[in-house]
Amino acid sequence: MPGGTGAAKRFGGLSMVEGLFSGTNYLAAKRLLDATALRQEAIAGNLANVETPGYRRMDVSPSFEAELRQAIGSGDVSAMKTAQPKLAVDATARSSRQDGNTVILESELLKLNQNSVEHAMETQMITGNLMRMRLAITGRG
């Protein structure tokens, strides 16, 4: 948790309990967790449609990453709270198949595993954050 006058000013409009959960890292991990859950849905959809002619693969829209990166960079808590991951058709994917489908089975499975590891990291970050808070409140972990 950031301390000092800067934090006091930043969380000035919030109640104390709300302020506890407005750390930049905590909020960013929360948002990223939303994004990984959504990416899991996108990959599930892509693998479901691996043989549908003309299907174009979907992923979390890249604008979310840019938005979140900017919010973290500027420490803007409210922007971080409003950044919402969305699904979009992956415009960069090119088809190497006759039927125009842009899903590549191997790369989807790789992304699936990558996403799973990211999700584990984010849940652990959030858990660690909550643990530290509990330690600060109760004096024992």
Partner: peptide, 27 residues
Amino acid sequence: SRSFEANLAVVKSARSLAMQTLSIGKR
């Protein structure tokens, strides 16, 4: 059958994601 297996892999991974989410806040 390969496609079926790929989708089963997704189920496994989705399940572990859900279990991880449920264990937030636990040691």
